[in-house]
Protein backbone atom coordinates (compact mmCIF):
# COMPACT_ATOMS: atom_id res chain seq x y z
CA UNK A 1 0.00 0.00 0.00
CA UNK A 2 2.75 2.42 0.99
CA UNK A 3 4.59 1.29 -2.12
CA UNK A 4 1.63 2.21 -4.30
CA UNK A 5 1.15 5.57 -2.63
CA UNK A 6 4.79 6.47 -2.85
CA UNK A 7 4.72 5.47 -6.54
CA UNK A 8 1.67 7.69 -7.06
CA UNK A 9 3.51 10.57 -5.38
CA UNK A 10 6.48 9.97 -7.66
CA UNK A 11 4.28 9.75 -10.76
CA UNK A 12 2.28 12.87 -9.89
CA UNK A 13 5.45 14.85 -9.19
CA UNK A 14 6.97 14.06 -12.60
CA UNK A 15 3.67 14.56 -14.45
CA UNK A 16 3.13 17.91 -12.71
CA UNK A 17 6.63 19.09 -13.59
CA UNK A 18 6.02 18.14 -17.24
CA UNK A 19 2.62 19.86 -17.09
CA UNK A 20 4.40 23.13 -16.21
CA UNK A 21 6.56 22.73 -19.32
CA UNK A 22 3.43 21.99 -21.41
CA UNK A 23 1.88 25.23 -20.10
CA UNK A 24 4.99 27.09 -21.26
CA UNK A 25 4.65 25.53 -24.72
CA UNK A 26 0.96 26.37 -24.77
CA UNK A 27 1.77 30.06 -24.39
CA UNK A 28 4.13 29.83 -27.36
CA UNK A 29 2.20 27.53 -29.66
CA UNK A 30 -1.39 27.56 -28.48
CA UNK A 31 -1.72 31.27 -27.84
CA UNK A 32 0.86 32.83 -30.14
CA UNK A 33 1.40 30.25 -32.90
CA UNK A 34 5.16 29.96 -32.32
CA UNK A 35 6.59 26.54 -33.10
CA UNK A 36 9.27 25.45 -30.63
CA UNK A 37 11.18 22.44 -31.94
CA UNK A 38 13.58 22.41 -29.02
CA UNK A 39 11.53 22.49 -25.83
CA UNK A 40 14.15 20.29 -24.21
CA UNK A 41 16.88 22.94 -24.59
CA UNK A 42 14.97 25.44 -22.45
CA UNK A 43 13.94 22.72 -20.01
CA UNK A 44 17.59 21.63 -19.88
CA UNK A 45 18.89 25.17 -19.42
CA UNK A 46 16.64 25.42 -16.36
CA UNK A 47 17.81 22.09 -14.96
CA UNK A 48 21.53 22.65 -15.56
CA UNK A 49 21.30 26.29 -14.45
CA UNK A 50 19.60 25.42 -11.17
CA UNK A 51 21.99 22.60 -10.30
CA UNK A 52 25.12 24.54 -11.27
CA UNK A 53 24.08 27.56 -9.24
CA UNK A 54 22.74 25.69 -6.23
CA UNK A 55 25.26 22.85 -6.00
CA UNK A 56 28.40 22.44 -3.94
CA UNK A 57 31.79 23.05 -5.58
CA UNK A 58 33.08 20.15 -7.67
CA UNK A 59 36.64 19.48 -8.78
CA UNK A 60 35.82 18.37 -12.32
CA UNK A 61 33.23 20.87 -13.53
CA UNK A 62 32.14 24.46 -13.16
CA UNK A 63 29.48 25.63 -10.81
CA UNK A 64 28.93 24.82 -7.22
CA UNK A 65 28.11 28.37 -6.31
CA UNK A 66 26.03 27.11 -3.42
CA UNK A 67 23.29 29.72 -3.91
CA UNK A 68 20.23 29.40 -1.72
CA UNK A 69 17.61 27.31 -3.53
CA UNK A 70 15.08 29.99 -4.61
CA UNK A 71 17.89 31.99 -6.20
CA UNK A 72 19.29 28.91 -7.92
CA UNK A 73 15.87 28.03 -9.35
CA UNK A 74 15.39 31.62 -10.49
CA UNK A 75 18.86 31.48 -12.08
CA UNK A 76 17.85 28.39 -14.03
CA UNK A 77 14.79 30.21 -15.32
CA UNK A 78 16.93 33.19 -16.33
CA UNK A 79 19.29 30.83 -18.20
CA UNK A 80 16.32 29.45 -20.17
CA UNK A 81 15.11 32.99 -20.85
CA UNK A 82 18.51 34.10 -22.12
CA UNK A 83 18.70 31.16 -24.50
CA UNK A 84 15.21 32.00 -25.76
CA UNK A 85 16.17 35.64 -26.21
CA UNK A 86 19.14 34.73 -28.42
CA UNK A 87 17.12 32.38 -30.64
CA UNK A 88 14.06 34.64 -30.69
CA UNK A 89 15.84 37.85 -31.63
CA UNK A 90 17.47 36.12 -34.58
CA UNK A 91 14.45 34.28 -35.95
CA UNK A 92 11.15 35.84 -34.94
CA UNK A 93 11.22 38.50 -37.65
CA UNK A 94 11.63 35.74 -40.26
CA UNK A 95 9.08 33.33 -41.67
CA UNK A 96 7.89 30.77 -39.14
CA UNK A 97 9.98 27.87 -40.48
CA UNK A 98 13.19 29.63 -39.37
CA UNK A 99 12.04 29.49 -35.76
CA UNK A 100 11.17 25.81 -36.13
CA UNK A 101 14.60 24.93 -37.54
CA UNK A 102 16.57 27.14 -35.14
CA UNK A 103 14.84 25.86 -32.02
CA UNK A 104 15.38 22.29 -33.21
CA UNK A 105 19.03 23.18 -33.78
CA UNK A 106 19.48 24.77 -30.40
CA UNK A 107 18.27 21.58 -28.73
CA UNK A 108 20.75 19.47 -30.70
CA UNK A 109 23.57 21.88 -29.88
CA UNK A 110 22.59 22.12 -26.21
CA UNK A 111 22.65 18.36 -25.70
CA UNK A 112 25.91 18.17 -27.64
CA UNK A 113 27.52 20.91 -25.55
CA UNK A 114 26.43 19.37 -22.24
CA UNK A 115 27.78 16.01 -23.34
CA UNK A 116 31.17 17.31 -24.44
CA UNK A 117 31.99 20.28 -22.24
CA UNK A 118 33.17 18.42 -19.16
CA UNK A 119 34.59 21.60 -17.60
CA UNK A 120 31.12 23.15 -17.74
CA UNK A 121 28.60 20.45 -17.14
CA UNK A 122 30.47 17.33 -16.16
CA UNK A 123 30.03 15.88 -19.66
CA UNK A 124 28.31 12.54 -20.02
CA UNK A 125 28.62 11.91 -16.28
CA UNK A 126 26.30 14.82 -15.56
CA UNK A 127 26.17 17.29 -12.70
CA UNK A 128 26.94 16.14 -9.21
CA UNK A 129 27.04 17.65 -5.78
CA UNK A 130 23.56 19.15 -5.65
CA UNK A 131 21.84 18.83 -2.36
CA UNK A 132 18.03 18.94 -2.34
CA UNK A 133 16.84 21.93 -0.33
CA UNK A 134 15.85 21.30 3.32
CA UNK A 135 17.10 17.73 3.06
CA UNK A 136 18.86 18.09 6.40
CA UNK A 137 15.57 18.93 8.10
CA UNK A 138 13.24 16.57 6.23
CA UNK A 139 15.40 13.61 5.34
CA UNK A 140 15.18 11.58 2.13
CA UNK A 141 12.04 9.65 2.83
CA UNK A 142 8.37 9.68 1.88
CA UNK A 143 7.71 12.90 3.84
CA UNK A 144 10.24 14.80 1.74
CA UNK A 145 8.73 13.53 -1.50
CA UNK A 146 5.23 14.39 -0.37
CA UNK A 147 6.23 17.93 0.59
CA UNK A 148 8.13 18.33 -2.69
CA UNK A 149 5.03 17.22 -4.57
CA UNK A 150 3.03 19.91 -2.74
CA UNK A 151 5.67 22.47 -3.71
CA UNK A 152 5.46 21.39 -7.39
CA UNK A 153 1.66 21.44 -7.35
CA UNK A 154 1.75 24.93 -5.87
CA UNK A 155 4.02 26.12 -8.68
CA UNK A 156 1.88 24.35 -11.29
CA UNK A 157 -1.19 26.15 -9.96
CA UNK A 158 0.67 29.48 -9.83
CA UNK A 159 1.82 29.04 -13.44
CA UNK A 160 -1.72 28.14 -14.51
CA UNK A 161 -3.22 31.19 -12.77
CA UNK A 162 -0.52 33.45 -14.21
CA UNK A 163 -1.18 32.23 -17.76
CA UNK A 164 -4.96 32.45 -17.38
CA UNK A 165 -4.59 36.06 -16.23
CA UNK A 166 -2.12 36.77 -19.02
CA UNK A 167 -4.34 35.27 -21.71
CA UNK A 168 -7.35 37.21 -20.44
CA UNK A 169 -5.44 40.47 -20.34
CA UNK A 170 -5.12 42.93 -23.24
CA UNK A 171 -1.72 41.38 -23.92
CA UNK A 172 -3.33 37.96 -24.36
CA UNK A 173 -5.84 39.37 -26.83
CA UNK A 174 -2.93 40.89 -28.71
CA UNK A 175 -1.25 37.47 -28.91
CA UNK A 176 -4.37 35.93 -30.42
CA UNK A 177 -4.77 38.86 -32.80
CA UNK A 178 -1.23 38.28 -34.08
CA UNK A 179 -1.81 34.58 -34.39
CA UNK A 180 -5.04 35.06 -36.35
CA UNK A 181 -4.08 37.96 -38.56
CA UNK A 182 -0.64 39.43 -38.37
CA UNK A 183 -1.27 42.11 -40.98
CA UNK A 184 -4.28 43.44 -39.11
CA UNK A 185 -2.34 43.50 -35.83
CA UNK A 186 0.46 45.38 -37.53
CA UNK A 187 -1.94 47.89 -39.00
CA UNK A 188 -3.18 48.65 -35.48
CA UNK A 189 0.30 49.97 -34.80
CA UNK A 190 1.43 47.00 -32.73
CA UNK A 191 4.81 45.45 -33.27
CA UNK A 192 4.14 41.73 -33.68
CA UNK A 193 7.85 40.83 -33.59
CA UNK A 194 8.36 42.33 -30.14
CA UNK A 195 5.19 40.83 -28.72
CA UNK A 196 6.05 37.41 -30.12
CA UNK A 197 9.52 37.69 -28.60
CA UNK A 198 8.03 38.45 -25.17
CA UNK A 199 5.68 35.46 -25.46
CA UNK A 200 8.49 33.20 -26.64
CA UNK A 201 10.79 34.18 -23.78
CA UNK A 202 8.01 33.91 -21.18
CA UNK A 203 7.09 30.42 -22.39
CA UNK A 204 10.73 29.36 -22.33
CA UNK A 205 11.23 30.71 -18.80
CA UNK A 206 8.28 28.53 -17.72
CA UNK A 207 9.96 25.53 -19.38
CA UNK A 208 13.11 26.51 -17.49
CA UNK A 209 11.13 26.42 -14.24
CA UNK A 210 9.95 22.90 -15.08
CA UNK A 211 13.53 21.87 -15.87
CA UNK A 212 14.79 23.36 -12.60
CA UNK A 213 12.20 21.39 -10.63
CA UNK A 214 13.05 18.23 -12.54
CA UNK A 215 16.74 18.65 -11.70
CA UNK A 216 15.89 19.34 -8.07
CA UNK A 217 13.69 16.26 -7.83
CA UNK A 218 16.45 13.91 -9.03
CA UNK A 219 19.28 16.08 -7.58
CA UNK A 220 21.06 15.18 -10.80
CA UNK A 221 20.97 15.97 -14.49
CA UNK A 222 22.93 14.49 -17.39
CA UNK A 223 22.77 14.64 -21.21
CA UNK A 224 20.40 11.64 -21.04
CA UNK A 225 17.77 13.97 -19.57
CA UNK A 226 17.91 16.44 -22.46
CA UNK A 227 17.32 14.13 -25.44
CA UNK A 228 14.82 15.15 -28.17
CA UNK A 229 12.35 12.55 -26.80
CA UNK A 230 11.25 14.98 -24.14
CA UNK A 231 10.33 17.58 -26.76
CA UNK A 232 8.14 15.03 -28.57
CA UNK A 233 6.46 13.99 -25.35
CA UNK A 234 5.66 17.57 -24.39
CA UNK A 235 4.21 18.24 -27.85
CA UNK A 236 2.05 15.16 -27.68
CA UNK A 237 0.78 16.33 -24.29
CA UNK A 238 -0.19 19.73 -25.68
CA UNK A 239 -1.78 18.36 -28.86
CA UNK A 240 -3.78 15.78 -26.93
CA UNK A 241 -4.88 18.41 -24.43
CA UNK A 242 -5.83 20.88 -27.13
CA UNK A 243 -3.60 23.79 -28.15
CA UNK A 244 -4.65 27.09 -26.60
CA UNK A 245 -6.32 25.45 -23.62
CA UNK A 246 -4.38 25.58 -20.34
CA UNK A 247 -6.57 23.12 -18.45
CA UNK A 248 -6.41 20.71 -21.39
CA UNK A 249 -2.62 21.09 -21.44
CA UNK A 250 -2.41 19.89 -17.82
CA UNK A 251 -4.75 16.97 -18.48
CA UNK A 252 -2.79 16.09 -21.62
CA UNK A 253 0.41 16.01 -19.58
CA UNK A 254 -1.01 13.53 -17.09
CA UNK A 255 -2.65 11.40 -19.79
CA UNK A 256 0.41 11.11 -22.03
CA UNK A 257 2.79 10.57 -19.11
CA UNK A 258 0.54 7.80 -17.83
CA UNK A 259 0.36 6.25 -21.31
CA UNK A 260 4.14 6.55 -21.74
CA UNK A 261 5.01 4.94 -18.42
CA UNK A 262 2.32 2.28 -18.83
CA UNK A 263 3.48 1.36 -22.32
CA UNK A 264 7.10 1.23 -21.11
CA UNK A 265 6.11 -1.01 -18.21
CA UNK A 266 3.90 -3.18 -20.39
CA UNK A 267 6.62 -3.69 -22.99
CA UNK A 268 9.25 -4.54 -20.40
CA UNK A 269 6.84 -6.94 -18.69
CA UNK A 270 5.16 -8.70 -21.58
CA UNK A 271 7.33 -8.31 -24.67
CA UNK A 272 9.60 -11.29 -25.40
CA UNK A 273 13.19 -10.82 -24.33
CA UNK A 274 14.56 -10.60 -27.85
CA UNK A 275 12.10 -7.78 -28.55
CA UNK A 276 13.19 -5.73 -25.53
CA UNK A 277 15.74 -3.68 -27.45
CA UNK A 278 12.91 -2.51 -29.70
CA UNK A 279 10.76 -1.26 -26.85
CA UNK A 280 12.01 2.30 -27.36
CA UNK A 281 11.28 2.18 -31.10
CA UNK A 282 7.74 0.97 -30.44
CA UNK A 283 7.15 3.78 -27.97
CA UNK A 284 8.41 6.37 -30.48
CA UNK A 285 6.17 4.99 -33.22
CA UNK A 286 3.26 5.26 -30.79
CA UNK A 287 4.02 8.85 -29.89
CA UNK A 288 4.43 9.72 -33.58
CA UNK A 289 1.05 8.11 -34.27
CA UNK A 290 -0.53 10.11 -31.43
CA UNK A 291 0.80 13.39 -32.88
CA UNK A 292 -0.17 12.65 -36.49
CA UNK A 293 -3.47 11.01 -35.58
CA UNK A 294 -4.60 13.89 -33.40
CA UNK A 295 -3.75 16.43 -36.12
CA UNK A 296 -5.70 14.45 -38.68
CA UNK A 297 -8.75 13.45 -36.70
CA UNK A 298 -9.02 15.68 -33.66
CA UNK A 299 -6.92 18.81 -34.17
CA UNK A 300 -8.77 20.63 -31.40
CA UNK A 301 -7.54 18.10 -28.81
CA UNK A 302 -9.44 15.81 -26.47
CA UNK A 303 -10.38 18.69 -24.18
CA UNK A 304 -11.24 21.57 -26.49
CA UNK A 305 -11.75 25.09 -25.20
CA UNK A 306 -15.31 26.11 -24.69
CA UNK A 307 -14.77 29.16 -26.83
CA UNK A 308 -13.10 28.29 -30.11
CA UNK A 309 -11.57 31.11 -32.08
CA UNK A 310 -11.65 30.24 -35.76
CA UNK A 311 -9.15 31.22 -38.41
CA UNK A 312 -11.30 34.05 -39.66
CA UNK A 313 -11.47 35.54 -36.22
CA UNK A 314 -15.15 34.93 -35.51
CA UNK A 315 -16.06 33.52 -32.17
CA UNK A 316 -18.21 30.41 -32.36
CA UNK A 317 -19.71 28.31 -29.65
Amino acid sequence: MIGLISYLVFFTTVASILAIAVLGLNLQWGNTGLFNGGVVAFFGAGAYGTLLLGGTPQPDHMGGFGLIYPLALLGGMVAAGLLAWIVGVLTLRMRHDYLAISTFGVAVAFENLMRNAEWLSGGAKGIRGFERPLRAALGDGFLYNLLFLLFVLLLLFATYRFLELLVGSPFGRLLRAIREDETAARSLGKSPDRIRLIAFITGSVIMGLAGGLYGTFYAFVSPQDVLPTLTFQIWAMLIVGGAGNNRGAIMGAFLIWAAWTASGWGLSRFAPVEMQIFAGSIQYVLIGLVIVGMLLWRPQGLFPERLVVSQSGHAKN
Binding site: F278, V285, G288, V292, L295, P299
Partner: peptide, 25 residues
Amino acid sequence: EKGDELSMVFASFGLALIIRNAIGL
Protein backbone atom coordinates in the same frame (compact mmCIF):
# COMPACT_ATOMS: atom_id res chain seq x y z
CA GLU B 1 -6.86 21.03 -46.53
CA LYS B 2 -7.97 21.68 -42.97
CA GLY B 3 -6.35 25.09 -43.47
CA ASP B 4 -4.01 24.60 -40.55
CA GLU B 5 -0.67 25.32 -42.20
CA LEU B 6 1.18 25.84 -38.94
CA SER B 7 0.38 22.28 -37.86
CA MET B 8 2.21 20.85 -40.87
CA VAL B 9 5.54 21.10 -39.11
CA PHE B 10 4.16 19.11 -36.14
CA ALA B 11 2.82 16.52 -38.53
CA SER B 12 6.22 16.25 -40.21
CA PHE B 13 7.92 15.64 -36.86
CA GLY B 14 5.41 12.97 -35.96
CA LEU B 15 5.81 11.35 -39.35
CA ALA B 16 9.61 11.41 -39.00
CA LEU B 17 9.34 9.59 -35.66
CA ILE B 18 7.10 6.94 -37.20
CA ILE B 19 9.28 6.38 -40.28
CA ARG B 20 12.60 6.34 -38.41
CA ASN B 21 11.48 3.89 -35.76
CA ALA B 22 9.51 1.70 -38.17
CA ILE B 23 12.73 1.30 -40.18
CA GLY B 24 14.50 0.35 -36.97
CA LEU B 25 11.81 -2.23 -36.22
